[in-house]
Computed example of a mutant assay.
Amino acid sequence: MVGELSARVQDSQDERLVEQYCHLSFLRWDQVRVRAETMGLRDAPEPRLGRFDGHLKGPARTEKAPYGSGMTQRLHSAMLRARLDSAALAEAVDVDAKTVNRWLSGRVPHRRTRAAVARVLNESEDLLWPQTRPDLTPGASATAEVQSAYAHRADIPNELWTSLLLGADEQIDIAGYAYPFVLELLPNAADILASKCRDGTRIRMAFADPDCPHVAERDALEQMSGTLPGRIRNALNMLGELTDTPGCDIGLHTTHLYNSVFRFDDQMIVTPYLIRARGYQHPALHLRKLSPHGIFTSFAEQFEQIWGSATHYPEGLSRELTA
């Protein structure tokens, strides 16, 4: 393999191949530089923060690889990319070289040290030591994304709702049946949302089509005596100038929902529906996005599914219905 790589290096200007050649043939960086210049490579590699005076120490070939060896290989590779050996990295983060070698054998540094190593190597902590962030692993059972849980939506402090609404500056996505309370959080809530759109915030609000069969079913389940369609029309009427504001899209869906979603940038309120309970009686979860594989992403993807089937308003319903 080393011979094959050496032949490729001779015909290449790719510095990464020189780095791989150094690792596989256990050359010192000064030797690699001479070799690179001999081969006529431009911009021969230089150590950045320390001199690489030998190959990185790792598990012997005859030893059984330690648990998490794939993870320690990430540190090994990052040190190669930074052209640092154990001694140079140890000096940069103020530890002993033997400590770095223990990391390369599988030991996980303390949190403060991990942050320092990540800065020196220009990598993220979760890439170097993914075992320290189980919530970033697909299928993980970590629940760190759940910031708080409420027995009822009505238990959520009004201050939390308003802080989420006022603090969002990238996107606001809402899907439910009516949710007029969102537009009643502040006396000028619709004007605030319109102003956010003009400043670049993307807002998407999906209401249920008041004439679709699912609305009648939900009305019966919540024992609302036929008032849900009127609540939806009332909420649409409260939108005011939002319906004509660039950056704000209003849609009508015909999806049978099992929960409402209120997303404000990387935070979200989700209310799972209970049978025969009104909207304010449903439980609620306050979520914060910490992982692309977490519960936040699951509900965000559900919103996209709902939004993809929604009809643009007011094309889907005449303005007269909201009068």
Rank of each mutant, 00 (worst) to 15 (best):
S124D: 01
L84D: 07
L80K: 04
M79N: 02
E241C: 01
Q305W: 14
L186Q: 11
G226A: 11
Y258A: 04
R218M: 06
C212Y: 14
E217F: 11
H23Q: 02
S291D: 11
A168K: 13
G226S: 13
D244Y: 11
L166Y: 06
G3F: 03
Q20W: 12
P138K: 05
L165H: 04
K196S: 08
Q302C: 03
E159D: 15
W29K: 10
G240C: 03
Y313F: 15
E170Y: 14
R81I: 09
E15Q: 06
I192T: 12
E4S: 09
I156W: 07
S298G: 12
T38N: 01
R16W: 03
S148Q: 12
P210I: 13
D209P: 12
V261S: 09
K289P: 02
R33V: 07
R83T: 03
S86I: 00
R112G: 03
F262E: 09
Q223V: 15
P180W: 05
Q73P: 02
R288W: 09
V34C: 05
S69C: 05
G40R: 03
A115I: 11
Y67K: 07
E91C: 06
P66I: 02
G139K: 01
S12K: 13
P134I: 11
D30W: 09
I174Q: 01
F296E: 04
H312Y: 15
L193F: 15
S69F: 04
K64E: 00
L236I: 04
Y273D: 00
R133V: 12
T113S: 08
S6T: 02
H110M: 00
V9N: 06
T297W: 00
R48L: 09
S12F: 06
R278L: 00
K196M: 14
D94A: 12
V18S: 11
S105L: 01
T99L: 02
R288H: 10
M79R: 01
R48C: 06
A194S: 14
S105K: 10
A92L: 00
T132K: 04
Y21H: 09
R74L: 08
G294M: 01
N259L: 13
R112F: 05
M1H: 07
H55Y: 01
S318V: 14
R83E: 03
R16Q: 01
P246D: 08
F52A: 03
T99C: 02
E304I: 03
R48Q: 10
L56D: 04
T322F: 05
D199V: 00
A116G: 04
L186D: 06
A151E: 06
S298V: 15
V2F: 15
A220M: 10
D169Y: 08
L242Y: 08
A154H: 13
L257P: 08
T254N: 13
A220V: 00
F299T: 09
M205P: 11
T72M: 04
P314F: 14
G68M: 14
L49K: 12
P138V: 08
